[in-house]
């Protein structure tokens, strides 16, 4: 249709033909990189601040190698303990798989798995791509870089390993559940007791399981990969439950991140003698 308005290459009188993105020669000539008038920067800034605070705290605690066990409580950062230099934990997950040669904090050996799970998590990817990478910082706000390949190349193609970290995360959550059960003892190891620390660990493990099971890989594995739900009624039911949790994946990611740090901090306070664990019964 000859309307005289068909797009053509811009003449030399237009903007720089080498410009890219929203300033590409064929697009509407708007000098501003974006025209958003709302506080679009608030969400990525808050996300980056929250994640940064957790990274600082967890780095300090993971490298400290001390004050992580106050019977009957063990910090979720240090369980299971797979090095020989662990504090003996009565009935706890003390597995000296790595022997005596490991001289650093035992937390470093085990935190790789929850860290990998969260680092490759579909929600956290969005959070740190926006918050730290500015890729993009917000919707319709341009990226600061000249080239983008997304998750097509190394190292970001490794994000596809998320489901393997999910499998490990289930094992770690199982061990933390065992630790929570051990929390129903008193300082001398007798069962049937409970303190504030037990409640802290209990809330933490509920949130850890909720976050782990709400994972998109979990949703896929339990039923999402099926083509015919009608042939697999049990998996369809499971998929429905996981989908309900999955809708709250972001909230659960933050809640469990905060709870795991608080649980560790509580154990630190008790183990370092800064706080006496109130016993309920």
């Amino acid at each position: 249709m000859a309307t005289g308005t068909d797009p053509q290459a811009r003449t030399t009188s237009g903007p720089d033909p080498a410009a890219h993105g929203v300033h590409a020669p064929s697009r509407a000539a708007v000098p501003a990189r974006h025209l958003r008038t709302d506080r679009w920067w608030l969400a990525p800034a808050a996300t980056a601040a929250g994640l940064f605070a957790f990274v600082v705290y967890s780095t300090w605690r993971a490298f400290s190698g001390a004050d992580y066990y106050a019977e009957p409580y063990v910090s979720p950062f240090y369980s299971p303990c797979v090095a020989q230099n662990c504090v003996p934990m009565k009935g706890g997950a003390n597995w000296e798989i790595f022997g005596a040669w490991w001289g650093l904090s035992p937390a470093l050996l085990i935190l790789i798995f929850p860290l990998g799970f969260r680092l490759t998590c579909y929600y956290y990817r969005k959070a740190y791509y926006r918050g730290f990478w500015a890729s993009p910082p917000a919707c319709a706000v341009p990226e600061p870089r000249a080239k983008y390949t997304g998750e097509t190349r190394f190292p970001l193609i490794l994000q596809n390993l998320h489901r393997y970290f999910f499998y490990f995360a289930v094992i770690v959550a199982g061990i933390l559940t065992y630790d929570t059960v051990l929390g129903f003892r008193d300082e001398s190891g007798r069962w049937g007791h409970m303190g504030l620390g037990t409640l802290v660990l209990l809330i933490n493990i509920v949130l850890i399981w909720a976050y782990t099971l709400s994972c998109h890989s979990c949703r896929h594995i339990v039923g999402g990969r099926l083509k015919h739900f009608s042939r697999h009624p049990v998996r369809y039911r499971l998929w429905g439950w996981v989908s309900s949790l999955n809708a709250r994946h972001m909230a659960l990611a933050w809640a469990s991140l905060v709870s795991v740090a608080l649980a560790d901090f509580y154990v630190y306070l008790v183990a370092s003698g800064a706080f006496d664990d109130p016993r309920f019964f």
Binding site: R130, T149, G150, E151
Partner: peptide
């Protein structure tokens, strides 16, 4: 179809 380019930052869902 370039699925690997998507870094799931959810702007499509937002709009």
């Amino acid at each position: 179809h370039g699925l690997g380019y998507c870094n799931i930052t959810k702007c499509c869902t937002e709009v």
